[in-house]
Write a protein that binds this DNA or RNA. Structure first.
Length: 519
RNA sequence: GGGCCGUUAGCUCAGGAGGUAGAGCAUCUGCCUUUUAAGCAGAGGGUCGCUGGUUCGAGUCCAGCACGGCUCACCA
């Protein structure tokens, strides 16, 4: 089944057969691994360009073609054969007959297996069943598949094998290719979107002496020459804001973040994040921009405003907007007796709400509010929101008015200093985006870092570290700025109807197939 | 980390209430010059994830372990 399991007799048999055939192919005078093939078209091109050409038209035109690809099926008929040649995306049928290709070439064909890579030249025609087909007059051997491909009808369905051997998954499961083509289109569209609005794309360090910009556990590595530990970044945020200080007033970055945390259908240790920052702006403007971005990416990639995801229709036409407190009230499990928005402003009210929620949740399997006795009001509200509302946010919904304790890098709300000007966007119960007006008061930022340090000393490994140079940068003056992060993998999940993040990451992290040999 | 489920031929899957392993595709041999999950006739191919246990006898029952999936927790 896998590289590391010892080959069975059948395995050896199949490989040995193909090895034998390769030797015979060499004996016929072919190079086993030729270096190139001059092709003039592809299966996809032919299928597109000649879909309307009739049998008669093709017969009179006798259009010459020269293409390469992988043999996906072979149907032999003695002195002739049909096969399908794939260019990776599409398959076109080829027809090989002894009296057309000649004896030498037909011998070569008989030594080919499904999976082999060949070049073919000939002309187009339509068969009895009207299938567009290449009538081959010459075959070129390009490379041998020494291992058999998965079964032609069912493909490769074993999830583990699909992730570990993505190349096989891509060869035999066309929808997988489609997913990753679409992922590429999404990212290209997003780049165009920001480029067109005057943002410049930048690259900031992935190896950082301090892992800042988010609350998460980092991976640690070491630079030998400098003899220093470095962290793989958990976010690019603090570097991007340094660029805002430097006068790059609109910047964005699309690249990997690394977080040393759990793996799930929504979390991979490395994942792709879009972050963008704009000077002289606030989080309200970003809500509008986010709506515009997502609505247009959906229109461009999916078409229309509706996305089907996991059996639900998600409309990108109009996004809901709720305060965090409002969402707790709105999605309270017992809609007849929700807490009041006002009660959720006090510690006592929040504790009562958490208690009441947990009492009701105990009877079911719904999530409980996890909070310690010394939890602050902001922590309680955050926990309450997660337990009560987060999973209910199927349609695109902005949640705003976040507690300051949960947001060490966000600007305080002018009227309610316990809250910050921040929002998150939820779709299909997933957190998709996180944005805020950036804290640009260096003194307040220093206080927030110190507050985080106290949490860190209290055992919170995810609390933010002190970043003196970032404080220094802010003290040169940062314009009022708004910034946002959008999870590219999760957007891709939504737009490809993928329920697992591993289906939108080409090579998701897996344990080794065999445990490392300990001596 | 908890719970549930899975691991049998290269691939996709069967194996009732323990009795020494099956199919289709793939492979091999033969036939076949318009097929398309081509067809016909025949053949080979298995450490039943690993290690123990129960039993006269284990793919099947039990325990532990490995890997994976789903889910809960964790995680913004």
């Amino acid at each position: 089944m896998t590289e590391s399991t010892p080959p069975t007799a059948s395995d050896i048999d199949q490989i040995a057969q193909r090895k034998k055939k390769l030797e015979q192919i060499i004996a016929l005078g072919h190079s086993p691994y030729p270096s190139k093939f001059e092709w003039t078209t592809t299966a996809s091109t032919l299928l597109k360009e000649y879909s309307a050409s009739t049998k008669e038209q093709l017969e009179t035109q006798k259009i010459p073609v020269r293409l390469a690809g992988r043999l996906m099926t072979i149907r032999g008929h003695g002195k002739a054969a049909f096969a399908h040649l794939s260019d990776g995306a599409q398959r076109i049928q080829i027809y090989v007959r002894l009296d057309s290709v000649g004896e030498e070439n037909f011998k070569l064909f008989q030594l080919l297996d499904v999976g082999d890579l060949i070049g073919a030249s000939g002309y187009l025609f339509r068969t009895k069943t009207n299938e567009l087909t290449v009538h081959v007059d010459q075959l070129t051997f390009l490379a041998k598949a020494m291992r058999p491909l998965p079964e032609k009808w069912h493909g490769l369905t074993d999830v583990e094998a699909r992730y570990r051997q993505r190349y096989l998954d891509l060869i035999v499961n066309p929808e997988v290719r489609e997913t990753f083509v679409r992922r590429s289109q999404i990212i290209r569209f997003i780049r165009d979107f920001f480029d067109a609005r005057g943002y410049i794309e930048v690259e900031t360090p992935m190896m950082q002496p301090l892992a800042g910009g988010a609350l998460a556990r980092p991976f640690v590595t070491h630079h030998n020459t400098l003899d220093m530990d470095l962290y793989l970044r958990i976010a690019p945020e603090l570097y991007l804001k340094r660029l805002i200080v430097g006068g790059l007033n609109r910047v964005y970055e699309i690249n990997r973040n690394f977080r040393n945390e759990g793996i799930s259908t929504r979390h991979n240790p490395e994942f792709t994040m879009l972050e963008f920052y704009q000077a002289y702006s606030d989080y309200r403007e970003l809500m509008d921009l986010t709506e515009e971005l997502l609505r247009s990416v959906v229109r461009e990639i999916v078409g229309g405003n509706i996305v089907e995801f996991d059996g639900q229709s998600i409309s990108f036409e109009k996004f809901d907007r709720w305060t965090m407190r409002g969402a707790v009230v709105r999605f309270w499990r017992d809609s007849k007796s929700p807490p009041s928005v006002e009660s959720l402003q006090t510690l006592e009210g929040l504790q009562a709400a958490a208690k009441s929620h947990n009492a009701a949740a105990a009877a079911t399997s719904s999530p409980r509010v996890e909070a310690g006795p010394d939890s602050s009001p902001g922590q309680l509200l955050g926990a309450l929101f997660e337990a009560v509302a987060e999973k209910e946010l199927i349609q695109p919904t902005f949640i705003y008015e976040f507690p300051v304790e949960l947001s060490p890098l966000s600007k305080r709300n002018a009227e309610h200093p316990a809250m910050v000007d921040r929002f998150e966007l939820f779709i299909a119960g997933m957190e998709i985006a996180n944005a805020f007006s950036e804290l640009n008061d260096p003194a307040d930022q220093k206080d927030r870092f110190e507050q985080q340090l106290r949490m860190r000393e209290g055992g919170d490994e995810e609390a933010h570290q002190m970043d003196e140079d970032y404080i220094r940068a802010l003290s040169y003056g940062m314009p009022p700025t708004a910034g946002e992060g959008i999870g590219i993998d999760r957007i891709t999940m939504l737009l490809t109807n993928s329920k697992s993040i591993r289906d939108v990451i080409l090579f998701p992290l897996m344990r080794p197939e065999k445990p490392a040999a300990d001596s």
